[in-house]
Design a protein around this nucleic acid. Sequence first.
DNA 1: GAGTGGTCTAGACCACTAC
DNA 2: TAGTGGTCTAGACCACTCC
Lengths: 245, 245
Amino acid sequence: MPETRFRQIAELLAAEFAELPPGTKVAGEHEIAERFGVGRAAARAAMQELQRRMLVRRIKGGGTYTAKRIDYIISADRAPSWSRTVREAGAVPRSIVLSCEPLKMPIDVASHLGRPAGESAYRLRRRSFTDDLPASWGDEWVPFDVLPQLPTAIRHETSLHEILRQMAAASPERASSRASIEVAGDDVADGLECATGDPVWLVESVNRDGVTGRLLCFTRRWIRADAMRVVFELGGHVPPEGASA
Amino acid sequence: MPETRFRQIAELLAAEFAELPPGTKVAGEHEIAERFGVGRAAARAAMQELQRRMLVRRIKGGGTYTAKRIDYIISADRAPSWSRTVREAGAVPRSIVLSCEPLKMPIDVASHLGRPAGESAYRLRRRSFTDDLPASWGDEWVPFDVLPQLPTAIRHETSLHEILRQMAAASPERASSRASIEVAGDDVADGLECATGDPVWLVESVNRDGVTGRLLCFTRRWIRADAMRVVFELGGHVPPEGASA
DNA sequence: GAGTGGTCTAGACCACTAC
DNA sequence: TAGTGGTCTAGACCACTCC
């Protein structure tokens, strides 16, 4: 039990911030330092502690804001839809298309979809938000023959899940999925508007049609760990619980 | 692309450390500061960057050592055994029993096992190592009637999986599992011999007998994120890949 | 006792954001 | 332009580990 000054301050601020609604701007480092009569290093350490606990988001030049993580639950019997998952967690989803172009599938992508390498597919690159905060970034690969009209469709309906349902007459479900925690490289940090070295999730999924079994698309998506609490469920449901020994 | 001094140093050291075998002691902060002609804050930032990337382990008063993460793969068709999983990843597993005592199951544990709350079970608390480094800590709950002789058995055979196979004539497999990333509290940090606030995995699993379907045990285990790269696989296998956009 | 990483002070300059 | 967080210096004391 380290009785350090910065941890005491962090504890106190954590309690204060818990009362505030998410997105509230809070005092800066200089102000914290003055308020508690400590140097800026101690004040900074306290704020960084809160950032590690994912209680605040800090923006260079901007300020520090209270934050709240949203559960992103991956399981076989949940629809593989970003918007639906976010909405079920009680937040507002939004996605913007960064690019949507036909490309030859690299070998790893093609093998996930059971196609020969070099076959053409649309690569849909998007950034997604929860409550207007950047939370996810990555690619969706959709083979030509699955949905040739994807580029036009995506302009009117932002949910790929919905497009597949309506225009490809499919009922998408997860065929396989894989998640791990990584450290953001420069490109990922850019896509997620976070700092290089921040912890991020890497989620790769293959979706298939629930009726015909045909493989529909392959998704490789990075998710900010401070935005989403990714929970992976295997087999039967496990009731929710509060973490502690 | 931030051209900061500490990141340059981190980059350079990362390349150097990559050549070293895991567990090698490397230069300390003071020495790094002197070598690169910077203050200790910059040297420290560089080393912390490497720690965030999970390339080194730092021990207060001890020193800094090169590290290597091991894949811990959770999937329905893999045996739910710590020792086997670690061995398959190419490391040496070891476990020590911290306690093994009969307790009345709290409601959340009991419900996972389909038992009434308050029923008796052994709570087996252990710390596990990979290559003699602390990596995991947590509890295994085994109902009395599943394995009444657990306390004596665990003294001779450290693998619960093996004990269940041999003494309960069961073939354990995962019934359900749930994983998420958390921030270590004081108790967890103590069990894992890491710092409070470090990122850790929380993995909860229910195991059953593959033949009879009977629920055998419930596991709640914390895993150091710098020791293991937990990978969760749902559905069919996804070939391994190298992370990058 | 020597060396380590953890904490902390009291300054400073910078790039960035918001206004 | 004012304020923010990010970086950095040059010191300091501490608790801890290793020998």
